[in-house]
Nucleic acid binder design. Structure first.
Length: 189
DNA sequence: TGCACGATGAAC
DNA sequence: TTCATCGTGCAC
């Protein structure tokens, strides 16, 4: 894989924009986590946008807490949380500090050094070796970041309702899940 | 200090 | 449809 971090790593300004725009543009980008000098790389094929405290489905809807404070921090940081007693989920914090928005990464297409399934937020974190230790980690770093893909292949973006947020009333119905149409690694096409 | 439940995934 | 499994948030 041709890869030049200096050229391809996304900058802070990428994340400091409207959350839906960031969510859509994260599709096709490469998530990179280097573990024991081996770069694990996956192409992002499915995401969900969580818009802020007004979004009833977002963790930030409960306000600033010990867990959600990262979501209210500056953009371009990882928000990693533990769920159902066994899985981790990874988000990318968006918009300016205090806003409380983030994009959940739901599925990856394996590119390099990935073993096991990567379709679904829990499996994705397991394959990428992402856990609580990476919570609040800056994504503008050498070992953990997101980069533009070396060869941008064209794709069509599909949008659907988010998964597992049935309790969020009208917010449960909004089409804030985005994925690459036809990609076999999407968790729920 | 206790307890209900969840941005999941796998089995049945 | 059910269950594993435990941190978080809020009630008491």
């Amino acid at each position: 894989m041709q890869y030049n971090r200096a050229v391809q790593q996304l900058h802070r300004a990428f994340y400091d924009r409207d959350t839906i725009v960031v969510a859509r543009e994260l599709l096709g980008k490469y998530l990179v986590h280097t573990v024991r000098s081996a770069a694990r790389v996956g192409r992002i094929v499915e995401v969900e946008a969580y818009l802020g405290p007004h979004d009833r489905a977002a963790h930030s809807a409960r306000g600033v807490t010990e867990r959600t404070k990262v979501m209210f921090g500056p953009p371009g940081y990882a928000y990693v949380y533990f769920i159902y007693g066994m899985y981790h989920c990874m988000n990318v914090v968006t918009e300016r500090a205090g806003h409380g928005a983030a994009v959940l990464l739901r599925a990856l297409e394996p590119v390099k050094n990935l073993e096991g399934r990567t379709c679904g937020p829990g499996l994705l974190c397991r394959a990428m070796a992402i856990d609580q230790r990476l919570n609040a980690h800056d994504l503008l770093s050498a070992n953990f970041h997101i980069a533009a893909s070396p060869k941008a292949e064209p794709f069509v973006i599909a949008k659907r309702a988010r998964i597992g947020v049935y309790y969020a009333e009208q917010w449960a119905k909004r089409h804030l899940r985005f994925y690459i149409r036809g990609n076999p690694f999407v968790s729920r096409p």
